[in-house]
Structures are given as structure tokens and as C-alpha cells.
Amino acid sequence: MRILWNRLSSALLVLCAASFITFTLARVIPSDPALAYIGPKATAADSAKLRITLGLDQPIPIQYFKYVWQTLHGNWGYSLSTKQPVLQEIIDRLPATLELIFFAMSFAVIFGVAMGVYAAKYRGRLQDSVIRILAIAGVSMPAFWLGLLLQMLFAGRLAWFPATGQFDIDLKYDNPITKVTGFPIFDSIITGNFAATLNGLHHMVLPALTLSAYSFGLLSRMARANLLEVMSQDYIKVARAYGLSERLVFFKLALRNALPPIVTVTGLSTAYLITGTFFVEQVYNWPGIGSFAVNSLLSIDYPAIMGITLLAAVGYLVINFIVDLIHAKLDPRVWMR
């Protein structure tokens, strides 16, 4: 219970710090949010009037406390560029981003860990080298660059996949998705709209591959390194000496003990993907939080920027908390520390 309380109180501190820093930065940069709200050709009088309406004429500390109070009451302000409530904008766009992260992370975990295990098994051989090159490329290649390359090759030249978007535009006229949960691919499955499911998966391939590249590389390297380390431990040698089958030794003893750090990295990678979507969604015109974040940053839409920062901070904290729980489940010593 004490550990839980410590985790929650530190999370609260992190949230306060994140909101304060973002708020202050958004206010001290030389820009006129009122101008962003009404457009570049508005008159000085209109701009001044709007500054009062938006409360921008008040001292920054007062503005901050008002912001915190309103945020706690579900009012995250209005986006300066879309004029919609920020919270609503986030709620509308979050499912598209979460689906993208889900598919990207599933790909990264399944293929990354499998490739790491495979590379460990064939250490020093051709397979290991090929996987190592793939992993290093995944980690080192910027997402926006990889996205453009994949787009050019698989959408432009080969025309195997659509270049952008979450679904074909025609889909909403021919096979509209009935909204149940708000997660479009999931909704298409549970409502039996398989044309939409296939279309959504078809659109998902390139963005998910792009987004997963970093995590894939990291996980495969991590899995390989951990597995090799565990395999060199004395208890593995003892197990082998006792004549246990190689499959049992590898999967039951070695892999299970190599998992906790991989789980930690998986969690951190998932959290990283929240901001990773900024680039990927922009390249693929994905209607999620990432493209909203980029457009908000470019237009200094500070209520939206603060909303997204808050969401990202909460996302990181929640994922880290879940990782801690899984870690503890896999390694009970965690609770004792």
C-alpha cells in the first residue's frame, strides 16, 4: 500500500510540474494567442477584446491557477485553431492513435522479441547479423524519414498500400462504420462490417510499421542480449547437466528470466510511441492525437498543447505503473525492495 501511495504521490508531482512548465513556456514565448484565435488580419481592437475574453490580460500565476481549477473540472479550454473544446478534440482523436499504437506495439513485441530470441539462438551467424542490421536500422532511422520511404515505395511505386488516411474516403458512403466504442477497426469487427475492417487494416500497415520500427529494434536487441546473459548463468548450466530438454531450458527457464527487463522496455517504448505518433501521423495524415499535436505546435495553440502534454504525461505515468505491476508479477522481489 505504501508503494502504491509513493507511486501516486510522485505521479501527482510529475503532473503538476509538467503542467506548470508547459503553461509557463506557452505564455512567455513572444506570440499573441488572441491573434491565433481570430486570424492574422484581425484588427488590433478585435485582438484586444479577445485577450480580455480569453483571460490573457490577467497575471500569469492567476491564469495558471484558473487553468488548473478548470482542468480538474473537465474544462481543458478551447483550441485556438479548431475552436472546439480541447478535451473533446482529444477524446475524438484518441481512439485512432490508440489503435495505431496497439498495432505498432503488437508488431514490435511479437516480431521484436521473436527476432531477438532467434538471433540469440544463432549468435554470430548470418541470421544474427541480418537481425542486428534490421534492429539498428529500426532504432536509428527517424520515423518521418522511414515513413516517407515506405510511402514512396509501397504506396507510390508498388501501389500495395494507401499512402495516407485511416480509411478510404469512399468507405463512409459505401460501408459506413457504426460507432460503438469509438475505436473504428474494433467497431467494424464487432458490427460485422468486414469491408471496413479490411480497409482499415490495409491503411494501418504502413503507419504501424513505421511507428513500430524503433520499438522493434530496441526489443529485438534487448531480447537477444538478455537471453544470452541468462543462458550463460550457472543455473542454466546445471539444468542442462541434469538433462532437461533444450526447449524446456530455453523457453521455461531462460526466457522467463529474461522477460522482466523486456517488459520494462516494452512499457517505456509504448509510452515513447505516444510522442512517436507526432511524426508518423503527420506523414500519413492519420486523424489522431499526433497530427493534432503537430498542428497545435505549429500554430502555438497553447490550450491544445497543454492538453496534449497533460495527456502524454498521464499516459507515461499510467503505462509505467502498469509496467511496475507486471514486473512485480514476474519478479515478486520487486515488492520487497
Binding site: P162, T164, G165, I169, Q282, V283, Y284, N285, L298
Partner: peptide, 17 residues
């Protein structure tokens, strides 16, 4: 579709989206 990025808009047109 509101697409701020010009290259993306171009790809949408040339790919028939």
C-alpha cells in the same frame, strides 16, 4: 480532407485517394 502537408496532399491525389 484538411491536409496541412503538401507532399501528403500530392500523394493523396496521385494515388487516387
Amino acid at each position: 480532407s484538411i491536409v496541412p502537408d503538401g507532399i501528403t496532399a500530392q500523394q493523396m491525389m496521385t494515388s487516387g485517394q
